[in-house]
Design a binder for these strands. Structure first.
Lengths: 151, 151
DNA sequence: CTCGTTGCAAAGGATTTGCACAAGT
DNA sequence: ACTTGTGCAAATCCTTTGCAACGAG
């Protein structure tokens, strides 16, 4: 279904250099994060189960969590909290900022550069080093605004 | 302990106009949100218990949750997700934006105006109406940056 | 008196943890 | 072989829900 070379394999490198092991589950989880642009741990687990087919075994939920955490420490994936109890993970390769519609839940990606001004200001005013990758903005999308004003 | 006039009583108004009732618990929860600048439902519950003293009864956890939700619908309080599983509530009267330190968890308040530029840009580019009140930015605070670079 | 509200306890969903076994190196 | 990683199940954490009793209007 998928070609196995999605990753330029920095994964193996990263792992070896830390005495960690390259397992099938690790590769699959990373693959899933890349495939689902914005996936919650649960969605990732589901995707893996689907990919595995009726017979193949998918990584256990706890393994998914453990590996997402690991991959994040390795800098290969990132997560953002978009709202209540639903962190979404995305590959670190395409940095982007999330904007979530508070009404329909739709997620849009935005160029992180829109936050440059804010980052500078926070650095100057508070000494904060802003982590743009973890920022989730919330608002109402065009469609929902239109729908809302109809009623 | 407290003067009972913290609120210009828009609460009673809001409630009556919707056929809802003004209860002691409701007033206390609103009071707690105002007192704790950034309180999680749990912290609010704790604060209420402390205020009540050893004998007085504090509102039940479920009541706290129910009323926070209600107060939010009434537009009297707002909540933000600062990270995993801990939404914080704050009075709608002092609009501010939260910046959380990813390392120490410290919360700083920032003038929402820093986001004006971003809001305009999102409106123009995506038709989004940005909800500045729900935005939580994440980064590393001055102290943690200093501590981090020491090691 | 009537219906919104509360308290309590149990149900739920999401994530984490302990442990023995399986698997990378 | 040695040690890390995995699966499974139990444990947590946070939040929600059902229901009988309570209290505001």
């Amino acid at each position: 279904m998928a070609d196995h070379d999605h990753e330029p394999v920095p994964l193996a490198q990263q792992l070896r250099s830390r005495g960690l092991r390259l397992t099938t589950q690790r590769q699959r989880v990373l693959e899933a994060v890349g495939a689902l642009e914005h996936g919650t741990p649960e969605q990732i687990g589901t995707w893996l189960a689907e990919q595995a087919g009726p017979d193949g075994a998918a990584p256990d939920t706890s393994t998914v969590y453990r590996n997402l955490e690991l991959l994040e420490r390795l800098g290969l994936v990132w997560h953002t909290h978009l709202g209540k109890g639903a962190p979404v993970y995305h590959a670190a390769q395409h940095p982007h900022l999330h904007v979530v519609c508070a009404v329909c839940g739709r997620i849009d990606s935005v160029d992180p550069a829109v936050m440059d001004g804010v980052a500078e200001r926070l650095a100057a005013d508070l000494g904060y080093s802003l982590d743009v990758g973890h920022v989730a903005l919330s608002g109402t999308c065009r469609d929902c605004r239109a729908a809302g004003s109809e009623s």
